[in-house]
């Protein structure tokens, strides 16, 4: 089973590297959108620093959402997805592999860029490790929940917009605990409860999201 998981992970990672502009575009969106906020709310360092964790998290959510079409759309269009479902290996494991590849191709670069956004938005120094750790714990959930949304909207009209409507409400809990963790760290409280919530969400989506996404894929390739 791990063999199948690794095979699909390797295949998707290879595709990600070959089409590295996709990753670059998402990262560019992350940075450019962050540069809009100083113009929108004014360049006052106090204001920006206060809302910086929220901006980074919201933009991470949007960046992940914008890259979700990479998960299944292309494979669905060229028929590869149908062949993948025909393999005797359990489909949820394959979905898990694709979600893992998506996280490595989107979540990890976002985490790597987060400190840059922190500097741009004057984030308090003590907040950096918590923000990074929170993103590391939260973004895998975003990829997994997003896989469900991406699978459900395969073949739908206006799939991108529809996906936003489906996925963003389900992202709200991750956003809440990711931001409250940073706020707690800045205010000098314990971050443990917030991280425990993020971990719980990750475990729940790790167990349930592949099953739901696999069911949706089966319906799409029928």
């Amino acid at each position: 089973m791990t063999g199948v998981f690794l095979t699909i992970l390797k295949r998707d990672l290879l595709l990600t590297i070959r089409q590295s502009t996709d990753v670059a575009l998402v990262m560019a969106f992350f940075v450019v959108a962050a540069a809009l906020f100083p113009f929108g709310v004014g360049p006052g360092p106090e204001t920006l620093g206060r809302i910086a964790p929220g901006i980074v998290w919201v933009l991470a959510l949007l960046a992940v959402m914008l890259s979700l079409d990479r998960l299944f759309q292309q494979d669905w269009e060229d028929g590869a997805l149908e062949l993948i479902t025909l393999t005797p290996a359990p489909l949820p494991i394959l979905v898990l592999g694709k979600a893992a590849a998506h996280w490595i191709g989107t979540g990890l670069p976002l985490i790597a860029l987060a400190p840059l956004l922190g500097i741009m938005l004057n984030l308090t120094e003590t907040a950096y490790p918590i923000l990074i750790a929170g993103l590391a714990l939260g973004t895998p959930s975003l990829s997994l929940i997003g896989a469900v949304g991406a699978a459900l909207t395969l073949g739908a009209r206006r799939a991108g917009l529809l996906m936003a409507l489906l996925v963003l409400p389900l992202y709200i809990p991750v956003l809440i605990f990711g931001v409250t963790a940073v706020d707690a760290a800045v205010a000098g409280f314990s971050v443990r409860p917030h991280f425990l919530y993020l971990g719980a969400i990750l475990l729940a989506s790790l167990a349930l999201a592949p099953l739901a996404a696999a069911a949706a894929i089966r319906n799409a390739v029928e």
Binding site: V148, L152, T153, L170, A216
Partner: peptide, 10 residues
């Protein structure tokens, strides 16, 4: 089916 799945997930 997709809508039914979403209802169950939600």
């Amino acid at each position: 089916k997709p809508a039914a799945l979403l209802a169950v997930v939600g």
